[in-house]
Write a protein that binds this DNA or RNA. Structure first.
Length: 267
DNA sequence: AATCCGTCCAACCGCACGGAA
DNA sequence: TTTCCGTGCGGTTGGACGGAT
């Protein structure tokens, strides 16, 4: 049967938005609120499809958006959330007030992926990348003795990942995929199941507005995330977060500081 | 100065999902 | 239950920009 296109594309404008178009969209939404996106362009006098208007609004014009590069803290959150949630950018964005899924996705693809690769971590699995040597790889992986330092560190994220996937299967009805169970490669019996709201609460607390006009801003510098997370049951959060911070030092430190970070990983 | 090349990011595209009829 | 519509989501694209040659 085929779906109808979201709008009649004939005569509609594509490409970058002009300041005039932006102004029309902003003033219409501020006056009338976000109504039916399909009808909006006509009502607002725009030669755009509704989808384009929605995207422009949510990704660029919304007044509560933060602009500019992600802070260090936000990047750390993105990495940890990606380890838990995978490429579910909208879910990740929902934990970062004022940031859009598109923005986070772009930042991941252009910055964070490179940083992770640079330190030998696969950005897709959050596991160490295979070490490239001139020798042939051993036939039997069980002969491997010690995991690289990064592997020990990223186990934190894998733990979170497993619990979140388990939860997602229950709540979001993700189709069960046996390959997931195999890939994570650790015993889920040892992993406490954490509900989503238990994970989110500390970050929600952190987002206490610092000014009434900017409800999405929060004072990252003055927050003590370790203290905020202590209420969580059964997990040694201080230890785990210290490891996360150590991973982050790998991402942000220059080479002269890297040895210090390495020491932190083996504590 | 000109060209090439890589990076970044706004915007587009197609699919999936949920709700209404 | 089925179909249709509106919206959301994630992957991809294309153009602007800046640095290297």
């Amino acid at each position: 049967m085929g779906r109808q296109p979201c709008c009649d594309k004939v005569g509609l404008k594509k490409g970058p938005w002009t300041a005039e178009e932006d102004q029309k969209l902003i003033s219409f939404i501020l006056t009338n609120g976000q109504c039916c996106w399909r009808a909006l362009p006509k009502l607002a006098g725009l030669l755009r499809c509704g989808k384009s208007c929605r995207l422009r609004w949510t990704n660029y014009l919304r007044p509560d958006l933060k602009r500019g590069l992600l802070s260090e803290y936000e990047e750390k959150m993105v990495i940890d959330l990606h380890a838990q949630l995978g490429n579910r950018w909208s879910k990740i964005a929902s934990h970062l007030p004022g940031r859009t899924d598109n923005e986070i996705k772009n930042h991941w693809n252009t910055h964070i992926k490179k940083k992770l690769k640079k330190i030998g971590i696969d950005p897709f699995t959050h596991k160490p990348l295979p070490i490239i040597t001139t020798e042939k790889p051993p036939q039997n992986h069980q002969t491997r003795q010690e995991p690289p330092l990064e592997e020990a560190a990223v186990m934190v994220s894998e733990t979170s990942l497993q619990s979140t996937v388990t939860e997602a299967k229950q709540e979001d009805k993700i189709p069960f995929d046996n390959s997931l169970e195999v890939d994570y490669n650790f015993c889920i019996d040892e992993v406490p199941i954490i509900e989503a709201h238990e994970i989110l609460v500390p970050f929600v607390n952190l987002s206490t507005p610092t000014s009434s006009s900017t409800p999405t801003s929060y004072d990252v510098e003055s927050s003590n995330i370790l203290e905020d997370l202590h209420f969580l049951p059964t997990l040694d959060w201080e230890y785990d977060l210290s490891n996360i911070m150590s991973i982050w030092n790998f991402l942000t430190d220059d080479d002269s500081e890297r040895n210090t970070s390495t020491e932190a990983l083996v504590m």
